[in-house]
Design a binder for these strands. Sequence first.
DNA 1: CCACGTCGGTTCCTTGAAGGAACCGACCCT
DNA 2: AGGGTCGGTTCCTTCAAGGAACCGACGTGG
Lengths: 149, 149
Amino acid sequence: MLKRTYEGQDCSIAHALEVVGERWTLLIIRDALLGLRRFDEFQRNLGIARKVLADRLRWLVDEGILERVPYQERPQRYEYHLTRKGRDLHVALVGLRQWGDAHCSEKPPMLARTKSDKKPVIAALVPKRSDHLRLEEVEFVPGPGHGSR
Amino acid sequence: MLKRTYEGQDCSIAHALEVVGERWTLLIIRDALLGLRRFDEFQRNLGIARKVLADRLRWLVDEGILERVPYQERPQRYEYHLTRKGRDLHVALVGLRQWGDAHCSEKPPMLARTKSDKKPVIAALVPKRSDHLRLEEVEFVPGPGHGSR
DNA sequence: CCACGTCGGTTCCTTGAAGGAACCGACCCT
DNA sequence: AGGGTCGGTTCCTTCAAGGAACCGACGTGG
């Protein structure tokens, strides 16, 4: 990408994509939502070039999506934790996931369900004040298509 | 991007991003959802290089997200219509939009509301069988932040 | 009949981001 | 002293995006 920006676009989708629209970025956030925290965990799980991963992590910290927190001294080591802003991306990611489930995979490699009664969960449009699930009420578990690729 | 694929990822998010994750692609689909159909409309509205637009449109037609339909003969001219598969991306796009509204813009440039009673609409996680709005029940109108950029 | 405009592209060159492999520095263990 | 771990950085190559010019089929006006 020559520029990461979409100039002249008066649109929150364009603004969002300027921040998280580059290659790898949403997959890093997906992994963070699933609990990954350390440089090597991301690198091994994604197979991403170390340079690109370092660039993306720095950018995401600058944007307030990840937080760089020390987990040991001598040698100083840091891990990356999602902020509220980062966790808020879960709706868009679940939306992408279910589109991929419906149109790109035969069987879903992963399922979203309620923690309490294990009922399937989807992302959908609803009236603003109607009740919906918070991220902490939902869990993600391997689905029927897991491992088929 | 050297490759458009994310090899070794057993994940529908990765598969979805292999199809619609490249620069410009989601903005083209956003425009299509708002009613744009012709090459020049997309090109002017996005300010995208014509070559890249031609590449993306061809790709999206190949993937069954857009349909190339003739709207005149002599000279043969085509426009691009969203398929069901393409329209299904609206949940992910609204999810991205509201994240951008919440974290990247001061005021939303665009609002989603119900066509019937003009109540605000959000994307959210809900139990699978609970009722939610279909795309045709929702409209998108300029919001308070419209034109501020 | 010739010039101009419209639409939907294609061609060509330049620039810069991604891939990949090697290297590095601080520390620990044996 | 040698090797391993972790979190990077450096360097080179390759390929996609940006941008501007060009093109072909057709309609329009003088």
